[in-house]
Computed example of a mutant assay.
Amino acid sequence: MLAICYGSQAGDRWWVAYMTLLFFCLVFSLPTGRNSICGYRSCPATNPSMLNVHLVPHTHDDVGWLKTVDQYYYGDRNNIQHAGVQYILDSVIDQLQKDPARRFIYVETAFFYRWWRQQSQSTQRIVAQLVNEGRLEFINGGWCMSDEATTHYSAVIDQMTLGLRFLNDTFGECGRPRVAWHIDPFGHAREHASIFAQMGYDGFFFGRLDYQDKARRMKTKEMEMLWRASESLTPPLADLFTGTNL
């Protein structure tokens, strides 16, 4: 049984990929192929004497919440929530081709898999090139963002395996996510961070934490941390760089 795909979309910001300020570039790890430049070296050049802020548009597309998965994908029942995921991908691929400086990160493999299977070979080649150039990045990589409250670890592993296997089979090393991404579950489990660390992720970003914890962390400048996610595993096996989204 797959883990519950979870996450609510805040307010009315259903119609656009959320923007987040990141103080480093979230991209892939290693180049693949002679013409591939994916990896950390595909980050835009920075100025070491300045504070470099990267604006990275990303998705937050619930794999079922207020509507069914089909209704989210095709944009049906917009009287409930105005969302049509296929159009996000259509517009993103179009806009990435118009400016080589643009970047986009995509999260929910369940929706991307469905969209990918509907595309022509020419569109698939364009997408593969964008991935190889590090301009279209996959993060998290699971079929969805898992619910962290009530799911068994085996279900989490199953749904992550399903999404990651598709990305690996389709795009190879350039499709490998390096960042875990849980920006909207209501609460976060230490075991999830431990699983991500053991899967080889370089970092973990999550949203929604207790307002008192958030206020303290902002005051003490501890919004970023090294999460020691296991008491039993020998460090650094379950240690993971972690940042909290505002």
Rank of each mutant, 00 (worst) to 15 (best):
Y87D: 14
Y87L: 15
Y87W: 15
I88C: 05
I88E: 11
L89K: 09
D90E: 14
S91I: 14
V92H: 01
L96E: 03
K98P: 13
K98M: 11
A101V: 09
A101R: 12
R102D: 05
R103D: 00
R103H: 06
I105E: 07
Y106P: 03
Y106N: 06
T109H: 01
T109V: 11
A110Y: 02
A110R: 05
A110D: 05
F111S: 00
Y113F: 06
Y113H: 00
Y113E: 06
Y113N: 05
R114L: 07
R114I: 05
W115V: 04
W116V: 04
W116H: 02
W116N: 03
R117M: 09
R117A: 01
Q119A: 08
Q119R: 12
Q119W: 08
S120Q: 08
S120N: 09
S122R: 09
S122L: 03
S122V: 10
T123H: 08
T123Y: 04
Q124M: 08
R125E: 14
I126D: 07
V127I: 15
A128G: 06
A128S: 12
A128C: 07
Q129S: 14
Q129F: 01
L130C: 00
V131S: 00
N132R: 11
N132H: 09
F138P: 03
F138V: 00
F138A: 03
I139A: 05
G141Y: 02
G141M: 01
G142P: 06
W143C: 00
C144F: 02
C144V: 05
M145R: 12
S146C: 13
S146V: 11
S146D: 14
S146K: 11
S146Y: 13
S146T: 15
D147A: 07
A149P: 07
T151Y: 11
T151M: 14
H152F: 15
Y153Q: 12
Y153R: 14
S154C: 12
S154T: 15
S154P: 08
A155Y: 15
V156E: 11
I157Y: 02
D158G: 05
D158P: 10
D158S: 11
Q159W: 03
Q159R: 08
M160T: 04
M160F: 01
T161H: 13
T161C: 07
T161S: 13
L162W: 07
L162G: 02
L162Q: 00
G163N: 06
